[in-house]
Design a protein around this nucleic acid. Sequence first.
RNA 1: GCGGGAGUAGUUCAACGGUUAGAACGACGGGUUGUGGUCCCGUAGACGAGGGUUCGAUUCCCUUCUCUCGCCCCA
Length: 422
Amino acid sequence: MSLPTQPYKGTRDFYPEDKRIQKYMFAKLRQVVESFGYQEYDAPLLEPFEVYAAKSGDELVNEQLYSFEDRGGRKVAIRPEMTPSVSRMVAGRRQELAYPLRLYSIPNLWRYERPQRGRLREHWQLNVDLFGIDDISADEEIIQMADSILKALGADSHEYVIKVNSRKLLKRLDEHINLSQDKARQLYRIADKKNKMTDEQFKQEIFEAGLDASVDFFFAATIDKLPAPLNESEEAENLEGLIARLNKVGVNAVFDPGIVRGFDYYTDIIFEVYDFEGANNRSMFGGGRYDGLVGLFGVEPVPTVGFGMGDVTLQNFLVTHKLLPELPSETDVTAILIGDVYDQAQGALSGLRESGVNIAVDASDRKLDSKIKHAVKSGTRYALFIGESELSSGKLKLRDLTKGHEDELGLKEIINKFAKHP
RNA sequence: GCGGGAGUAGUUCAACGGUUAGAACGACGGGUUGUGGUCCCGUAGACGAGGGUUCGAUUCCCUUCUCUCGCCCCA
């Protein structure tokens, strides 16, 4: 009986080749959001249980939260999302922070649920939030940034679509057709599934729930085709203007009345990004405006717009659309020592390392061809042969393992070669 | 929580109610001692676990575990 080598259900190990992918994606995410002036923060993995009990949604808290009691009897939860944490942080310095406040983080988040494609128990999520702007320019910036990220990763705007809706508009609908809060909830739940069903199935569910009056709303192709007087409401105008401006800057944004999002805390504009590729059926990521969350921590509310982008769905997207490049190893060179030259080679190795060349040493007494095979397998691109003759001549043999050709180079030449590709 | 599919070497797969369960790739070693990803030879390595049916189970049945896809819910 031995311990299993598998990671815990719904989690992943990141071997170097996996971690490389993650590092690549995160580097792009950081690059784009920082280009929009967002600053990185972080928060603890654990939060007091109450932070989530206060909002989020019942299902999440009751079924999907990893929680436990600490040794002091405090109820603690592993964060299932970042929004409450960042809201807590902003509330904590409500008065002294400079607004508009642009923050981002890439936390790992945990949810107890049955793993399936695109949804695991642990994932990493880029979380971006813009605090302190109560007009629609904030929503526009956030959505534009989401779009820029996908483009920076090589996606083309015809490979995905950003579907936009408004919670306020949905609320207008509720009032217009006189729904109780319970009925409205039920309606949202059905609407949320609209994109997975045929129109007929959707109508079927709507009728079975006795929500017939809402059908016109959900089948409105554009905002001006919404049932009156909703089509002339302030919310509708806002939404229309937002989408028009996004389209103008090349963002493939469309109105979709079926977008509702799960969390209770959204207050106005909401959006979800969908992959056009059928294999990635569900919404890739999304976000929206939540003006009330900071206020839950006992301070004046701060208007906020944000989104979360999960690494699992993002990677699925990139793989499906063949957008992941060949990623090189962090190690530039494997130095292959020939003969008993370990001591004599140290000077050269240190010199290379201090100049920024990442270099692993193979000082084993395996056969030479075997050492080369290992260097290839480890993923390093170059092998550097160091033996008696190289040390006496001062010229080392640098072999490009991908191309198979070899140069005899002095230390300085080698350093220069890698200085160009750090 | 509910359903479908799948569990055989490190990996991808095969076969079979009956002697030693095969292959490819990978690993390790060798092909006379300083050049791989092409070749040749050799070595090691597997029926997820438990129970049942049977003379006999890796094979059929049940349970369980794990993986996977979907539902619920949701990012």
